[in-house]
Every structure is written in C-alpha cells, then in structure tokens.
Design a protein around this nucleic acid. Structure first.
Lengths: 107, 107
DNA sequence: TACACCTGTAATATAATTATTACATATGAA
DNA sequence: TTCATATGTAATAATTATATTACAGGTGTA
C-alpha cells in the first residue's frame, strides 16, 4: 500500500472502506487468504457482486489477488490482505484537501 | 466525537469523509469557523448542496453548527470543526466488522 | 457422459448519493 | 420601498454505487 496519498487517493480509499461487505471481506482475509467462491459463500452474496467489492478493495491496494492451482488441479483465485495503517486527523485532511479534483457535471 | 465506534458508525464516518467537498469543508473549518453562505461561496456550490454536505459531516460529529447574531444584527449559522483522530488497521477493522448490519433488498 | 466444483464477465435493474431549481422568510442599509 | 445579504427546505433531476440474472468456459470424478 502506498505511503503517500493524494487527496483523490484518500477519497477512493475511504470509499472502498465504507461498505459493510468490504469490511467483512477484510475481516475474513485478516484470518487467512481465501478463494473467491468460498468468500462468496461465507458472505452470502453472489460471485458477480463479490467481484465488484474485491475490485474496489484491490484498486486501493488493500487486498491482492493471485491464482493458485489446487491439489486437485483446479485453478483457484485467492485474495489476501495487505497490512495497512491509516491515521486521519484534521491536519492531515486539511493538507490533503489542497489538491483535490472536483468533478464537473455536463461539461 | 465518540471514542468507541460500532462497525455501522465507522462506515458512516468513512462515507462522510469520502467526498471532495466534505474534505474541503474540513480544511476550511480547520482554519477558522465559518458561516454557511460564505462557505458556499468559497466552495463554489449552492447552499442547498452545501447543507447536504454539512448534515453528513454533522451527523458523524465531525463538525458542529451554532447560531450567532452578527454585529449588524443578522442571524448567522456558523460551523466549526471538532478535533478527531482516527486510526485504522486490519485488526481494528476485523474487530469492528463483527457487528455490522447488512441491508436487505425488498424484504 | 453427467455432475460438482471452479473462474470470469456482460447486461440489466435497483437503490443511494449528489446536485439543481424554486421557493419562503428575515434583517439592515440606501 | 427596493436591494443585498442572510437562513432554511421541498421537489426534482442526474449520477454513481449496489445488486441481480444470465451467460461462457475450465477441471476432476463418478
């Protein structure tokens, strides 16, 4: 995970964390790496939806996926958690807010 | 600001922080308290939109509003920033993820 | 072959967030 | 009175985020 964030990166990171399924994914992967289908079962959601959440977490580098060949020869996709430590206070946010992009509607 | 958060509270807090206007509001209020119309001018947005953002920040107790009577006698609504310090790592999130509510669609 | 697993994505629907427009009300000053 | 300032909200539109459904393909085993 990046050490120095831009304001935009911070927003993406916080957005990635502000969803219950994604927090639960982090909690599960904190125990041990897990593959997609098993994760979907544990969370009680469909794989397509899970992929969406995994992508958001991977985009901000909170998790990382890789392929493994199981003992029985099947291709499995495992995800594991990256370690991170985020500190937020008013000074840090004030600094990062300096360079922040605002999306314009209908340009 | 609360010291002990639930998982749901954490999500609300992070959601409140994952918006560029709201980070800018925090940055401005970090300098000094400000009243609504002036804030809207500085941010370049309408007051109705600003109210929406202010409400989200106030709901999670990052800011606090109060009324003041200006020298000229007008009622002004000022907002000021609460100090905060948020630390997030995988262990903290794993703990908070234990009690997390998942919204059901069409129950 | 048929079954039980697995990965992956496209197309679509639903819900939530963000943004706009249009009001109503009040005060002080010219 | 008229103008410029302020607070506040209701109704609606636009955009983004979430969620579902329906596919296509692969491997190992009975």
């Amino acid at each position: 995970m990046k050490q120095i964030l831009s304001g935009d990166d911070l927003i993406k990171l916080l957005a990635a964390l502000s969803n219950p399924f994604r927090l639960k994914i982090i909690a599960i992967l904190h125990q041990e790496k897990q593959y997609v289908s098993q994760l979907a079962r544990e969370l009680g959601i469909s794989r397509p939806l899970l992929y969406l959440h995994l992508q958001k977490l991977e985009e901000v580098e909170l998790i990382k996926g890789h392929h493994e060949i199981s003992e029985t020869g099947k291709a499995m996709k495992y995800y594991e958690l990256n370690s991170f430590n985020i500190v937020l206070n008013e000074q840090i946010i004030a600094d990062l807010a300096e360079n922040l992009s605002i999306k314009k509607r209908k340009d």
